[in-house]
Computed example of a mutant assay.
Amino acid sequence: MTLQQKLLAKKSKKGFTLVELVVVIAILAILAAIAIPMVVNIIQSATNSSGASNASTLSQQCKNVYAGVKSGTINNDESTNSDGTNIGWAAAKTSTASDKQTAANAVTVADVMTYSGLNFDISDDYYYCTTAATGVAVGDIAYSDTGSAPTTPANAAYAQLATTTTLGTIYP
């Protein structure tokens, strides 16, 4: 075999050495160690943002439904849920103010969600404000991903929100 043939034979060998593979794996491990915490933070931030947005929407819808039932604009005679089904939790349009107030107090968060077409789980992370403070009003709904009620603002107190919570509890 000539020298030229020997050189060509060496050049035609394919594959990676063990050192090259270890270096590539080490680089990938370093990149993963940097990227994984960033992705986790992005996911947590998106969850918090979505929860806060849902809380704000639900809070506004509860206020609107409470005021609508109390005034009679939301009533058993003409109003329907977002899916077109009739509601049975409001007073009749011609009811007395006292009957409308009683009906508004008895509306549940589940009724509001069905009426408004809201479809998200409020089982653990949603709270309503029971005492007013700077920046938050009685009845405002807040999201907390910590497993406990929000702690700010300092003068506000929060209670756990559930689908069975009535608007009369939220807006005393």
Rank of each mutant, 00 (worst) to 15 (best):
A46F: 00
A29R: 02
N81F: 11
S56K: 13
S45C: 00
V65Y: 06
W89P: 11
S79K: 03
Y66P: 00
Q44R: 10
I42H: 06
A33W: 04
T73H: 00
G68P: 12
Q61E: 14
N86R: 12
N48E: 12
I43L: 07
Q44V: 05
I42K: 11
Q44D: 15
A46I: 05
G84H: 03
T85R: 05
I30N: 02
P37A: 09
G72N: 09
N54K: 07
V40D: 07
S59N: 00
A67T: 15
C62Y: 08
A29D: 01
G88F: 13
T47S: 11
N76E: 10
I34S: 08
N75M: 11
S56N: 14
S45R: 06
T73F: 07
A46G: 04
E78I: 10
N81M: 08
N48V: 12
N64K: 04
I74S: 08
S49I: 06
G88K: 11
L58D: 07
A33Q: 03
K63T: 08
I34P: 02
V39A: 15
Q60S: 14
T73C: 01
I43P: 01
G51S: 04
A55K: 05
N76G: 09
D77N: 15
Q61M: 10
N54D: 14
I87F: 05
I36N: 04
S53V: 07
L31C: 12
N75G: 11
G68D: 14
T85M: 06
S49E: 13
W89E: 14
K70R: 15
N86Y: 08
S45K: 10
D77R: 04
A46E: 11
L58V: 08
N86M: 08
K63M: 03
V65T: 14
K70V: 03
L31M: 13
G84W: 04
T85I: 09
T47I: 13
